[in-house]
Amino acid sequence: MPRRADVERRNRWVDALINTLAVPQRVDLARVRDTFCDTTCAVAHKGASLYRDDNHLSDLGARRLIERVLAPVLLQRLAEAGR
């Protein structure tokens, strides 16, 4: 499994770019890395790959991201909007 520090180092430039673009637009960022990494980053779950290549999630990885990050955020936003 890749170490989180190595993944962060590899993605430093894109993280900086995303942060630069998001701040003036008041965009909430979902940190995908937090879903898959603690000190190491999971690349598989129960023998099934979470990625289809070195940067793109597989269907399983995408479902995991939706369940753990996107669904809770969307539910919170709907609650805040009174729906």
Rank of each mutant, 00 (worst) to 15 (best):
A71I: 15
A71S: 09
N55P: 02
T20N: 12
D34I: 07
V69C: 10
L78P: 00
C37R: 03
D59E: 07
A48P: 05
R9I: 09
H56M: 07
D6P: 02
M1Y: 11
E8H: 06
A42E: 01
V69N: 10
E67I: 12
G47Q: 01
L57T: 04
R31F: 12
A16V: 15
T40Q: 04
R52G: 02
L78I: 05
A48Q: 13
G47D: 02
V32C: 06
N55I: 08
Q76Y: 09
F36N: 00
E67R: 12
C37V: 03
D53E: 03
R3K: 15
L70V: 14
V7P: 06
A16H: 14
R10F: 07
S58V: 03
L75R: 12
V23G: 09
N55S: 08
V23W: 15
T35K: 05
S49G: 03
L57H: 03
A42K: 00
L70Y: 13
L21D: 10
L57Y: 06
V32W: 04
L65Y: 08
I18E: 03
T39E: 14
F36V: 00
Q76V: 09
R33G: 11
L60T: 01
P2E: 05
T40C: 00
R3G: 12
M1E: 09
T40G: 00
A22H: 08
N19V: 15
R10I: 08
T39I: 14
T39Y: 10
Y51E: 00
T39W: 11
T20M: 11
A42C: 09
R12P: 06
T40E: 04
A79R: 06
L60Y: 00
R64M: 12
P72F: 13
L74S: 11
S58Q: 04
A44I: 01
